[in-house]
Design a protein around this nucleic acid. Sequence first.
RNA 1: GAGAGUGUAGCUCAGUCGGUUAGAGCGUCGGCUUGUGGCGCCGAAGGUCGCGGGUUCGAGACCCGUCAUUCUCCCCA
Length: 452
Amino acid sequence: MRYTAPKGTHDILPSGKDRTDWADDITKWHWLEGIFRDLCALYGYEEVRTPIFEDTQLFHRAVGEGTDIVSKETYDFVTKGGDAITLRPEGTAGVLRAYVQNRVYLERPIAKLCYIGPNFRYERPTKGRYRQHYQAGIELLGASGPEADAEVIALLAAIFTRLGVSRLTLRLNSVGSIESRARYVEALIAYATPLVSQMSEDNQRRFGQNALRMLDSKEEQDQRLLADAPIVTDFLDPESREHFEALQKLLTTLGVDYKLDPFLVRGFDYYTRTLFEIESPDVGAQSSLAGGGRYNRLVEQLGGPATPGIGFGLGIERTLIALQTAKVPVPDPTAPVAFLCPIGAAARDACVILLSQLRGANLAADMDYTGRKLKASLEQADRVRARYALIVGDDEIAEGVTQVRDMQTKQQARVPIAHLAEMLRGMGGLPSLPRVNTLDMNSNEKGEPGGD
RNA sequence: GAGAGUGUAGCUCAGUCGGUUAGAGCGUCGGCUUGUGGCGCCGAAGGUCGCGGGUUCGAGACCCGUCAUUCUCCCCA
């Protein structure tokens, strides 16, 4: 019996080869996560980590019983102790639960939180859709003004800018308050009632269950029938309208491009007012890379004080697929400064000690353990893209030196072991250049810092 | 939940009308210097042809089943 990863899950592996999918390549993940974390710090968002499972009721209440996610896509189960728990299908509910439970609002009237972690949905996997997928997201709690919306959206846009993706669309909509949305849904149902019999099977079902979602249909007949449907934004209450208009002005001021889309509807019930989504043409049918919106009643619903909030979630796998398709350049993973190439058994012993000393001096180093010929060790040094190969044979041991070979220039120098760490650190980019008398190691390229 | 496609070496894939010994490129390992890498040349290792059954003198190929996987619908990140 050979085991395979469960359906809809995937392994993320060391990269090296560009043949792998980026969504399976750990260096791409590190890169993306690094950009996300840097920007969160820049915008003042602090990380929180919450459990990957919660009481089933939390998700059912927060996300909405009628949504597809809850009605058919959650991983629900009962523990041995009889508790009903659910693997989290999205990030916001758990973060808000933690916010309320720990009374974070008492210390931080404005709480700016970010998170990154796996979510689970039981659905049929396709390109860019996984049963276990990762999202990076933020939540801004306690601020109701349009500036908060603008900041959250600007941060999202900044992530993609820094990643280097273009070819994206930011779609923007407002569904208004719960009351104005209800009025709109009523009007929509009134409009659709005489037409519903001509609509697709799916939309007939939605008509009864979640009329708003009819707008999301990709069926041509549905789109035609709904072309003259009432528009959500015409039903906004005055405050929501003002908020929405102010947000648009702010986005324009900030240079964030967006496209108004009154048909944008999202899968969670908790949204109020602002809704947005980032779309890419590069991920097959799963074009939505990130999405979010405002949820002014959710904290209250979860037992906290009435607190406005807004946030987004960004699909990491999907974003990586889009980056790969768009051939966005990604920095290489860091390489060791030194790779030790021992010649003979005595040299191997000496290299083990030397290796340990280099690492103790905070220099990324590695060595050949296979006992192969020097040629093969140098090939290995080349393969791991080491900046220097350190060649150690009986001669070098006798003299207390190593041959330091610059892998780019092929220049070599005998360097006393006592000076090795100092010299490598200097060549790693720091100022203190060694006074080694032999060949000049003229480094016209400034190397990648060897350290981390 | 529904539909379609694909499973041959570590990876990407050829394999004709069913024909006897299973193919290439890349990768890996070794040789081309006694201790000097990238390019090139030579060589080797590596296969339950996803698995089970069936048809046939003969199956990697055809049929059935099964598992895995990919894509699409639904829905979402």
